[in-house]
Design a protein around this nucleic acid. Structure first.
Length: 453
RNA sequence: GAGGUUGUAGCUCAGCUGGUUAGAGCGUCGGUUUGUGGUUCCGAAGGUCGCGGGUUCGAACCCCGUCUCCCUCCCCA
């Protein structure tokens, strides 16, 4: 017999946690539906050919691979065993656990292209798995709540994403957050302007750390990544841009004047801002952050990231536009944009800020006591009537001491206990006890039903 | 994938430079006389000291390995 344990980076969610989590899920689902998104679920397991190569080399490493069933080592030769685990893995594993919801969604779209109404808007709430090293706010199994639109490159979608983020977070009581937006085209433009076209990838990795390690360390890292002193010098404006939101667009436009793609990126973002404004969102918590990069390599247009201002934790939501995600599955030219909420982190933030409403864990409203066989028989009839009236009710299963029964109700936070003994059976007048105040009154069933109506 | 750290009862932790039967608080369970919980009081159960190996007359304590927790890097929700 061995002690039970959880797999690394995974958690159980007990009843109390589940009701809080469901509170978040329900909010997100409601908002997604309000914006016209339809539900989709895909399998936990995907063929590795679907997953590999979509998240960069890092991502491939973080994929959980599933060992082939049966004799997976069958047919392996001595030389293949010598080649190292990376090549060997592909021989013994053909399937893996999904790493995010976007790639499986792209696969679904390609496989069902003829049936889908375009533009296709879907939402998906399911767990994903990453063979990452666990840390605060990082788990190996966690839920993502995605909403994506494919089949249109309208910037209205980007604007709606901004609106949904505000609606979800405000709906949950989180007032202080920042929606950071950038555009990959702007990053390309910057790379062009400083004389390092096509180098935006490594440039972003360094710049992304600005708020963490500071300007000098970023310059150091850029140097290490092969950027010349001259290009770094030309990059200087970026360090001033983030601080000043008021005229960031105009300064950015001047800076990227020489870059066609960069200017296009700016125009796109301005349009997003304008649409959000037209919608009438009050006090948008929107910030253009030219240092925002995001690792996933498939993004091509707008990129989003949301941070909780009052809690030190990674981003609680992120997303962006990808112009050619379905291209790798043989369906080019389909543009999409999406957003993903990280419930686990939102949960942690809400817990820390005490934003969960009280009474979330109450499920049973009334518990009927159990004295003896007669009282139980009588109680069953009452139980049926309570339940038919839509009241969550239960009858204590054993004729234990009342102390024990009350203790049970107390610990389950059941607000009312209905006491049924011989007196009550005779008169039909039942004793209803309010567990919080301790008050007890004798009432007819009709009256009791009306209390909970 | 690289580096650091942690691991003793269900939980939070004590346990002196290695020395007999490993402790506390909280929690759990039972009782405090037969129809009333959240407060007292009394009592009990519960640990192969993460796991495996080694050093020693003797290891919770020292050494090695391994797993886990947390942290930094990487990356990300």
């Amino acid at each position: 017999m061995s002690k039970p344990s959880l797999a690394r980076g995974t958690r159980d969610f007990g009843p109390a946690q589940m009701s809080k989590r469901n509170y978040i899920f329900d909010m997100i689902r409601r908002v997604f539906q309000r914006y016209g998104f339809l539900p989709l679920e895909t399998p936990a397991i995907e063929n590795l050919s679907v997953l590999m190569g979509k998240y960069g080399d890092e991502g491939d490493q973080l994929l959980f691979k599933i060992l082939n069933s049966g004799n997976f080592a069958e047919g392996l030769t001595e030389t293949q065993l010598q080649e190292g685990y990376k090549k060997l893995t592909l021989k013994v594993s053909e399937k893996g656990l999904r790493y995010d919801l976007t790639v499986p969604f792209a696969r679904y779209v390609v496989m069902n292209r003829s049936d889908l109404v375009m533009p296709f808007k879907r939402y998906q709430i399911q767990p994903v798995w990453r063979a990452d090293r666990p840390q605060r706010g990082r788990y190996r199994e966690f839920y993502q709540c995605d909403a994506d639109v494919v089949g249109t490159d309208s910037l209205l979608c980007e604007a709606e994403i901004v609106l949904m983020i505000h609606e979800v977070l405000r709906g949950l009581g989180m007032e202080s957050f920042t929606v950071k937006i950038n555009n990959r085209k702007i990053l390309s433009g910057i790379a062009e302007v400083i004389g390092a076209p096509g180098q935006e990838g490594p440039m972003c990795v360094a710049i992304d750390k600005l708020d963490k390690i500071g300007k000098e360390k970023v310059e150091e890292e850029l140097k290490e990544r092969g950027f010349s002193a001259e290009t770094i010098e030309k990059l200087q404006p970026i360090f001033e841009l983030t601080n000043n939101q008021t005229d960031i667009f105009s300064s950015l436009r001047v800076w990227l004047e020489g870059s066609e793609i960069g200017s296009k990126g700016i125009t796109e973002l301005e349009e997003v801002w304008a649409k959000v404004d037209k919608f009438g969102l009050s006090q948008p918590q929107l910030q253009l952050d030219v240092t925002l990069a995001r690792g996933l390599s498939y993004y091509t247009g707008a990129i989003f990231e949301v941070k909780a201002n009052e809690v030190q934790i990674g981003s609680i939501s992120g997303g962006g536009r990808y112009d050619n995600l379905t291209g790798t599955f043989g369906m080019p030219g389909l543009s999409g944009v999406g957003i993903s909420f990280g419930v686990d982190r939102i949960y942690d933030v809400m817990e820390e800020l005490k934003l969960f409403p009280e009474n979330q864990s109450i499920s049973t409203q009334v518990m009927i006591t159990n004295f003896d066989a007669d009282a139980e028989a009588y109680g069953l009839g009452i139980l049926r009537q309570l339940r038919e009236a839509g009241i969550n009710a239960e009858l204590y299963p054993d004729a234990s001491k009342l102390k024990k029964q009350f203790d049970y109700a107390d610990r389950k936070l059941i607000p009312y206990v209905l006491i049924i003994g011989s007196d009550e059976i005779q008169t039909g007048i039942l004793s209803l006890k309010n567990m919080k105040s301790g008050e007890q009154q004798k009432l007819g069933l009709e009256h009791i039903l009306s209390i909970f109506a």
